[in-house]
Amino acid sequence: MTDPNRPTTTAGTPMLKVSELTHRVELGNDTLTILQGVNLEINRGESVAIVGRSGSGKTTLLGLLAGLDTPSEGSVVLDGAVVSDLNEDERARLRAQRVGFVFQSFQLLPALTALENVMLPLELGGVEHPERKARELLERVGLGQRLQHTPRQLSGGEQQRVAIARAFASNPVILFADEPTGNLDNRTGQAISDLLMALNSEQGTTLVMVTHDEHLATRCQRQFSIEAGVLSEPAGAERRREALS
């Protein structure tokens, strides 16, 4: 079994390698295939968008990539760890140490203040002085004055900023974002994606974003589209990428 705690591998290996990933769910007597034979390789520091309509299977794919769920078939190797071979606790440890999340619906705990929400992953990871680090991050996302506010007292954009601060708190090597601007208006969405991109390049994080927003997708280095559970990289994209590199 792979040790999720082993040191990060060298830059040569891909950050995420997905082979023949298939996911089925049982619905009564029927079996529904949500993902079909997905292959994907993402390099370190890359930003990748997966674009698809509602119900295309993109969020399921994101969950499997991040180790939130286990696939029916195929494997996911994240930063050298075979996610699909890890048990629940090992995956939890992997997430705590190397993965960050941003959700469409923010997923902040309503009872906690902005500061406490950001401290949460730091505490889980046993980081020293979690409060200091959380404070710095909230200042970085422009919420230095709103530390003690609860999510209810914040606007949608502000809540997503808190969520972004929380996602970067544990210094993840890879960040998964699920429709990060889906619940926001255009302008706020723009600001949030700016922030996300800026932090991503500052920290050198690999970014995997799922969205139905083509415009947001174009801000990523690579775009994939997903339809009826089948993932494809649009023609020419490969060439463009090679040219860029």
Binding site: A92, L94, R95, A96, Q97, F101, Q107, P121, R166
Partner: peptide, 8 residues
């Protein structure tokens, strides 16, 4: 959420 953030 705690589990998502890596709580065992």
């Amino acid at each position: 959420l705690l589990r998502t953030l890596g709580g065992r």
